[in-house]
Amino acid sequence: MANNKNIVIQEILEKYIYPVLPHNLVAMISTVSFEKLADLTEIRLRINQPLLLVLGNSDITISPMGKIATNYNESYLCNQEDIHKTLQFISKNSLYAFEHELKMGYLTIDGGHRIGLAGQAILDAGVVKSLKNITCLNIRIAREVKGCANLIMPYIVTKEGRVLNTLIISPPRCGKTTILRDLIRQISMGSKMCKGLQVGVVDERSEIAACKNGISTVDLGIRTDVLDSCPKAIGILMLIRSMSPAVVATDELGRSEDIYAVREALNAGVSVLTTVHGKDINELLDRPYVGDLLQNKYFHRYVVLDDTPCVGTIKKIIDSENNEVLWDAGTK
């Protein structure tokens, strides 16, 4: 199992991450063994701050000689050139092609790995037009974990083979996209519980399907249509009209128009699988837009994720009808 994880991280780093990092950083990171990097979830670059490798719930820094630094004073400090070169590699000298993403504060590279950006916002009439002087980058390693949604499947598929409307609730970095991806794959492929269903995916951030030239680079099953880089609100309605899916899946609800589109899909009789940032249901109930969906019980199932003891831990599965806890990690 550990060996498997090493191979996965090696492949991810060599295929997707190293090509977007400057050579000096690649040289430093590659000196760390893959056993150590097996749980790598993030690589953080901040100007004048140590290069940080986040491993699950802990992090390490690296010295300029490529050794794991025990003291921050020995760590390699990232500079302007590192950030500039990384952005140049990511955008392939085409920042104009990522205008929309820059406004949102992230870019997605091949393999569905999201790169968060922070710097100075350029405002136009109170709206963020773009980012300049980018000083911090967060490279988030996405993993395709087939079978990670096995536990959830029996709770969200009815005896008749219908998929129940499901909301995955999770704080950032707890694996909601990975679980959503596996749910999509299993529903699309079909299983003992249900036959394969037509699934429509609206992948606003290109994270779920990790599309390259519009073609998914991860396994989402044989009955999945992907609308890549399309705003959720528009995409959901487009898919319903054009592809007649049985299930629509999308990531990270938040804006009022997203909620409107999800409501439209639910009213149209299409099952919805989606995710939202949050710790638990009570926290979400008071939140604008998403709270309305919960109060009106638009979803049948809530899946709450956590990062203890490890990323992607399914904490609870709840039936919205009577708030009955169908699965509780604490009692199992």
């Binding site: 955008s91 000298n93 085409s94 104009y96 092609a97 205008e99």
Partner: peptide, 12 residues
Amino acid sequence: HIIYACLPLHEA
């Protein structure tokens, strides 16, 4: 190719 198709520079 840059303005309307938003192609990456090398492709454009």
